[in-house]
Design a binder for these strands. Structure first.
Lengths: 201, 201, 201, 201
DNA sequence: GTATAATCGAGACGGTACGTCCCGTCTTAGT
DNA sequence: ACTAAGACGGGACGTACCGTCTCGATTATAC
């Protein structure tokens, strides 16, 4: 719940202390017992908070966890506003993909991210929220790097950037979600190479 | 869900009547209330069956639903053992992709498939079962078509077929699962064209 | 409920407006939902008042209701300082009993009085308060009428007046509280006759 | 819930073990924390029983407690089917009243009985249940003793027995419930004497 | 006439209990 | 042997209130 006015009914009297405790408890617990056995009751107890305080500000455990993850990534990094741009698109993408793979292999991210992604598949409201607050900024960052490559003549001017982003990251996400294969640096490289071969002018 | 439902030799005393009623009830209910609020208790009541009869034969509601979907797709089609092979890989793939999109847009398939996919993301046991009984046969069928294209010289001999399958179907699955864009015939065509451009020798 | 509401000298800053609204809301609500589901939260909301304003001046919902009933009976009558005294004790008592029965049948009094009486059965503090502010004045009034009868030679000089009051009003109260029989004018008469037969010299 | 078919939906599969544990826990707890802080949740926990098992068989904590008290008095005595009958009505009644006073002074009975009586004042359903299962048998026993006195010529033939019972026991119950005076053997005697004086032919 | 402090409405907070839904196990009767 | 039925101990749900606790925003004396 980073952006104040969007989701908070009346942020004025809200207890920052409780908010932090809830997000922390949610992350802790999802790591300990998994998403399926994560419960609002449990989060409240761990956070030393009344259940109502959670229900007042979040509609579901999925929403709590989403905010927790968002807060986590905001704390961890300082919002990396852009992908690396060394001039060499292929090298840059490989680097990014390898980093993504590493992140997805970190159990601190894997469990909660996986849970969140499962949740949004069912719940269109949650899905819209995630799309707006997570996917769109990320996609924009990726498209920005591709635009830079277009300017450098490494990609055709008329390329459908949304499609391109999907071509690059879609297979990776799929392999991660469905565990349909190992996530190795070699896979990252092979994927980038194969896709770029098709995209280049 | 233990035995492949086609031949169940030693399930001597098992009531076929109840089995069908359970699978039908599961499909009905998942369509009515969604996967999250689907319950074994509810399935039993709808099927006019004791709860124990479900627990005796399936380990979880996910397993019931999986069998239900398997039975559904078996009834619907007659197991298409191969992808179309007209000699024109691009045309064939476009046709298959368009058909897939149509299937995924059918609410009779959408909800339960989505639920199933979400479930397997958490549960590695379920995931392995799905991989074995659903993904592997499907992937083999797809790879077979690509092999045929290799023989026809439309794809390089040393192509990594598993990667190729992921490149083609991964983005589509992703768009469907995450609702990150509309599933249109045009999208199918653009996807196939872009990927094949990269794969061709 | 601290100060007798008639004279409240030092409640300097207290809002008379809120006090009235609270008592009125309490009476309204107890009539609508009954005592068990009456809540301070509900009274505050109905009265358009902060919860704290209630907690500041009353210790419990029972105390609020007690004041509300007291205020009600003060408004309704002008404090009848004495029972009727026509010289005929039996006739006077019958009249009073019939009036009491009528009052107890009025739903405006029945529910809240019943609630109050139930409450004081548990809570000795409340009970003492009620005894002091409600019962003792009433009992004194009743005993006064009996004393007059003693002076007129209709009752023995050495009669235990407290016991006599209990003998007359006890059965009536019991029948009302426990609903152990219908409250009719005939019952009032029979009761008075039977008791007086035993009390007379 | 002593009488099987009256209150049990389907007594066949009911766990006698749980039933006993629940009634015992209810009595224990009401003694420890009082009726107001007695909770179904608490009873269930103390009895080592699921809450649903209580809700399945009783509609409210008041109903549980009523059964608990009924069971208690059934265990304690062997159903005293009649009041003592020595031929001397006054002596017999004094003895009974003194015994009643003693029982009402026993905290093992006082708290729960008081709570129950308060509860039935609000809840007409509970009230009817109590009237049927507790009051009516008791009243019948009392009336039987009075009928015997009628036969012995100690009471008039045309006496309204229901009224007589109320005259004798009503004041006592009232004094107990409202704590409007001390419950002493002397009070019992005075009460019986005064009432009988009025009832005798 | 202004300052100033008690009181006000509003409502968030940590809690307890509610009554309900299901879980997965179990027992009973019926076929 | 398997079934329909459903009671059982248990966990969590989402809601209602509890009594306490800030928040500004009035008021209504006492300066």
């Amino acid at each position: 719940m980073a952006q104040p006015p969007a989701t908070r009914p009346n942020a004025s009297r809200r207890s920052e202390r409780s908010r932090r405790a809830i997000l922390a408890a949610a992350l802790d617990l999802v790591g300990e017992v998994g998403y399926a056995r994560l419960s609002i009751e449990g989060i409240a107890a761990r956070a030393g908070v009344g259940k109502q305080t959670i229900y007042r500000w979040w509609p579901s455990k999925g929403a709590v966890l989403f905010d927790a993850i968002l807060a986590l990534s905001e704390d961890a990094e300082g919002r990396p506003a852009a992908l690396p741009d060394s001039g060499d698109l292929e090298a840059d993408l490989k680097q990014v993909m390898r980093a993504t793979i590493e992140e997805l292999s970190d159990p601190r991210f894997d469990e909660p991210l996986r849970a969140l992604t499962a949740e949004r598949m069912h719940d269109p409201v949650l899905a819209a929220d995630h799309a707006e607050r997570l996917d769109e900024p990320m996609t924009e960052i990726k498209k920005e790097r591709l635009r830079s490559a277009q300017r450098a003549g490494q990609l055709p001017e008329d390329l459908d950037l949304d499609l391109a982003v999907e071509l690059i990251w879609g297979p990776l996400l799929n392999r991660w979600l469905l565990r349909s294969g190992p996530l190795t640096p070699g896979y990252a490289d092979a994927l980038v190479e194969a896709v770029l071969r098709g995209l280049r002018p």
